[in-house]
Measured scan of single mutants.
Amino acid sequence: MIHRILNHSVDKKGHVHYLIKWRDLPYDQASWESEDVEIQDYDLFKQSYWNHR
């Protein structure tokens, strides 16, 4: 379960990846995930991330 999205990056092919802080895990366990991976409520977290940038 996502706690929040910390950052994003765009690779050379134009694909967006998000650095995800996972609920109940420390920050050093955050991981980069592609924008099209199937994660519960991912779209809501991405929308919230962009609304607050």
Rank of each mutant, 00 (worst) to 15 (best):
M1N: 15
M1D: 07
M1V: 14
M1C: 10
M1L: 09
I2W: 02
I2E: 06
I2H: 05
H3T: 09
H3K: 06
H3M: 07
H3S: 13
H3E: 15
R4L: 10
R4S: 12
R4I: 09
I5P: 06
I5C: 00
I5Q: 05
I5L: 07
I5K: 04
I5R: 02
L6Y: 04
L6I: 13
L6E: 01
N7Q: 12
N7V: 04
N7P: 01
N7L: 07
N7F: 06
N7S: 12
H8G: 02
H8T: 03
H8Q: 02
H8E: 05
S9N: 07
S9H: 13
S9W: 10
S9R: 15
S9D: 08
S9T: 13
V10A: 06
V10R: 09
V10L: 08
V10Q: 08
D11S: 09
D11L: 01
D11Y: 03
D11N: 10
D11G: 05
D11V: 00
K12P: 13
K12Q: 12
K12M: 14
K13M: 11
K13H: 13
K13L: 08
G14T: 00
G14D: 04
G14Q: 04
G14H: 01
G14P: 04
H15Q: 13
H15D: 06
V16G: 03
V16Y: 14
V16K: 12
V16W: 04
H17A: 10
H17G: 03
H17Q: 12
Y18K: 02
Y18G: 03
Y18F: 07
Y18H: 04
L19H: 02
L19P: 04
L19G: 05
L19E: 03
L19K: 00
L19F: 06
I20R: 04
I20L: 05
I20Y: 02
I20P: 01
K21F: 06
K21Y: 08
K21V: 07
K21D: 02
K21T: 00
K21S: 08
W22R: 02
W22Q: 03
W22S: 02
W22E: 02
W22A: 01
W22K: 01
W22M: 07
W22N: 00
R23I: 11
R23S: 10
R23M: 09
D24A: 08
D24K: 07
D24P: 03
D24G: 12
D24F: 07
L25A: 09
L25G: 08
L25M: 15
P26C: 04
P26W: 05
P26K: 06
Y27G: 10
Y27L: 15
Y27S: 14
Y27A: 14
Y27V: 15
Y27I: 15
Y27T: 15
Y27F: 12
Y27D: 15
D28K: 12
D28V: 07
D28L: 06
D28N: 13
D28S: 15
Q29I: 00
Q29F: 05
Q29A: 12
Q29D: 08
Q29T: 04
Q29M: 08
A30F: 06
A30N: 08
A30I: 15
A30G: 00
A30L: 02
A30P: 08
A30M: 05
S31Q: 05
S31P: 03
S31Y: 04
S31A: 02
W32H: 03
W32V: 04
W32M: 02
W32G: 01
W32D: 02
W32L: 04
E33K: 13
E33H: 09
E33D: 00
E33S: 06
E33T: 12
E33V: 14
S34C: 15
S34W: 02
S34T: 08
S34H: 15
S34V: 06
S34L: 08
E35G: 10
E35C: 04
E35Y: 03
E35M: 01
D36F: 09
V37K: 15
V37N: 15
V37W: 00
V37S: 15
E38V: 10
E38S: 11
E38N: 07
E38G: 10
E38I: 12
E38Y: 08
E38K: 13
I39Q: 03
I39P: 01
I39G: 02
Q40L: 09
Q40R: 11
Q40F: 06
Q40W: 06
Q40S: 09
Q40M: 11
D41H: 07
D41V: 02
D41P: 01
D41Y: 07
Y42L: 05
Y42S: 04
D43M: 09
D43F: 08
D43I: 01
D43V: 07
D43R: 06
D43K: 07
L44F: 10
F45S: 07
F45Y: 13
F45M: 09
F45Q: 04
F45R: 03
K46R: 03
K46D: 01
K46E: 04
K46A: 01
K46N: 01
K46S: 02
K46H: 01
Q47H: 13
Q47L: 08
Q47W: 07
Q47T: 14
S48Y: 15
S48G: 10
S48W: 08
S48T: 12
Y49Q: 00
Y49K: 05
Y49C: 00
Y49V: 01
Y49H: 04
Y49I: 00
Y49R: 00
Y49L: 04
Y49D: 08
W50H: 03
W50N: 03
W50T: 04
W50E: 01
W50A: 02
W50G: 02
W50Y: 06
N51I: 06
N51L: 10
N51P: 00
N51D: 14
N51F: 12
N51Q: 14
N51M: 14
H52R: 14
H52Y: 10
H52W: 14
R53C: 12
R53P: 07
R53Q: 14
